[in-house]
Design a protein around this nucleic acid. Sequence first.
DNA 1: AGGAAGATCTACT
DNA 2: GTAGATCTTCCTA
Length: 186
Amino acid sequence: MGRAFYSRRTEVVARELLGKTLVRRLGGEALGGRIVETEAYFGSGDPASRAHRGLKRYNRAMFGEPGRLFIYNVHRYWMLNIVAHRDGVGAVLVRALEPTLGVEAMRRNRPTGRLRDLTRGPGRLSQALAVDKSLDGVDVTRGESPVVVLDSPPMGPVARSPRVGVTRDLPEPYRFYVEGNPWVSG
DNA sequence: AGGAAGATCTACT
DNA sequence: GTAGATCTTCCTA
């Protein structure tokens, strides 16, 4: 997907990323899968957002060019976001994948019994794809990047709900997911 | 230098 | 279904 795809309202991009294929290039292999769950986060008006209290060193990617990764830590995990906004500030948290590529390599990164637990949830997904802060700012619209997003056919009915785990949410629901998909968290 | 928060996960019961 | 671990970053002193 190109720059124009991400240069739209954050919630539109969050909705349209469902079904797309997220690919992580690692050691000559391609790992990843179909995006089945996302959330939209905004700028100063969003109390749950990392951008809420203004520009810091660690969140500068979120204020920048759409189509770049914004990686940030919570507890001991890394959250993978793609910067997406038209006016203001925003990013889309990728919360879950249905694994389709490099399953063996992902299991090496994140040993787990159940395939279902491989990429269900933002922390698990980042472990399986070996995502950490070093990928902050990577441009996913460039073909040679270590993370890219490929267009893919739609997957099924989309539902929305309040965002997961946030202490202070917005009145509108900003979580989007593919209804009934086993890799959706929660 | 130390404390607190946080968009989580695991391992119990 | 709930308690506790764990780590990066920020804030205050």
